[in-house]
């Protein structure tokens, strides 16, 4: 059944193996790092710094429309602390900017 190894099945299986390796390696890495002190503080800060990096990258790849919508979303997030409201506001603003302005 060599026919089964099309580029598509190779990519599906390869990504599955790569993903599982990455996910498990992270678990072992986290378990091996010290539980106190600088390492622990760094690991604890990681969610915030990583998501900041992700949002920054997404905004860089966008343009003025995305920056305005991002600023509005941030305002709504600060005031409402609500995930659905922030998503709705962001999508509504980007939709309006792309269609009517």
């Amino acid at each position: 059944m060599l026919d089964a190894f099309t580029p598509i099945t190779l990519v599906i299986l390869g990504l599955t193996v790569a993903n599982l390796t990455i996910r498990l390696s992270g678990y072992y890495l986290g378990a091996a790092l010290p539980q106190l002190g600088a390492w622990a503080r760094g690991l604890k800060a990681l969610p915030g710094t990583l998501i900041t990096a992700l949002v920054t990258l997404q905004l860089i790849h966008g343009g003025p429309n995305e920056w305005i919508a991002g600023a509005v979303a941030l305002g709504v997030a600060i005031i409402s602390r609500s995930l659905p409201l922030t998503m709705l506001a962001g999508i509504a603003v980007i939709f309006a900017l792309r269609h009517w302005i």
């Binding site: 949002v55 997404q58 995305e66 979303a73 997030a77 922030t86 962001g90």
Partner: peptide
């Protein structure tokens, strides 16, 4: 843009 907005809310 849905996910950018979602991650902004999560950062908050």
């Amino acid at each position: 843009f849905a996910f950018t907005a979602a991650f902004i809310a999560i950062l908050r």
